[in-house]
Simulated scan of single mutants.
Amino acid sequence: MNWNYLILILAATIAGGMIPMTVKRIHANFSIYLLAFTGAFLFGVIIMHLLPEVYHELGHQAGIYIVLGFFLQVFLQQLSHGMEHGHTHMPGEHQHNIAVTPLLLGLSIHAFMEGIPLGFKYDDQSALPSLMVGVAAHKIPEALTLMTVMMHAHKKRADLWRILLAFAVVTPIAAILAGWLGNRFEIVQHYLLYVVALVIGAFLHISTTIFYESGTKHHELSGRKVIAIAAGLLLAFLTLIFE
């Protein structure tokens, strides 16, 4: 377990959550292009690193668990209102009446799931650092959206900090737990691979949703958004040099 990676994810989550708490007005395009870039990078990491790993180990069974993970994410976003992909499906005028508990529950389950693959041992030596960076990048818009919704729900500043810090530690805790159990019990390491396949499915749902939904009307792709997506994919391609 590389603690530097976990510190990076923790710091990225806190930094993302602090943006709406400290910046009075955030330009709408900032979120759009940040989402497009991070979603594309995460998508590239999945395709180039994680998919080959799980299909090599699980064969056709990998596809079954990836599909299950995809639709598990569909279910989870009914609780979290889509905040995993950096925006919410809730109408703005109703955000002060939202039920905070199911929202936080859905998002926390997702955060725990995405931490589990970080504790897995990959044959591809570049898979783990690439995934760590991808998750850290994903955490910034995710935490930004969470805290924006909490602020619209008129949470006190002390409560905002408690929510942010609690959310920030979920993914590192999941990574530590998965790594510890995997090192201690060989059977756990084996079944972690199935969980990784589930999380791949969830990540595919999130990243592809970002491409078409993030901050656009009628799901169009603007020129600048295409550039942001291309930059994210290019960065993902560059991770191959570490193999």
Rank of each mutant, 00 (worst) to 15 (best):
G86L: 05
H60R: 09
A137M: 15
Y55C: 00
F71V: 00
T101F: 14
M48T: 11
G115R: 07
G86E: 03
L164R: 14
P91I: 10
A136E: 09
T145N: 14
A153S: 12
M83W: 06
A99Q: 14
A111I: 05
A136S: 12
M90K: 11
Y55F: 15
D124I: 08
P141C: 10
L51R: 08
H110C: 02
G106D: 02
L177C: 13
T145Y: 06
L128M: 10
I98Q: 11
V169E: 07
G106C: 03
T101L: 15
F75P: 03
T148F: 08
V133K: 04
M151T: 03
F70L: 00
Q73R: 11
K121N: 13
K155I: 09
L105G: 02
L144M: 15
G86M: 08
A174S: 15
A175N: 08
V135Q: 05
P102V: 02
M147V: 15
L118K: 01
P129C: 08
E142N: 06
L50Q: 08
H94A: 09
L76R: 04
F71P: 00
L131G: 07
Y122E: 02
G119R: 04
L128F: 08
H87M: 11
F70C: 01
M132F: 11
I116H: 03
T101I: 14
D159L: 08
M90E: 11
G82Q: 05
I140N: 04
M151C: 05
P102I: 04
A175E: 10
H87Y: 09
L76N: 01
P52V: 02
M113P: 01
I176L: 14
E57Q: 09
I109L: 15
E142F: 12
T145Q: 14
A158D: 11
F167L: 08
F70Q: 00
H154M: 07
E114K: 09
I98R: 05
A166N: 10
L72P: 04
L107Q: 10
L72Q: 01
L58A: 05
D159I: 10
H60L: 12
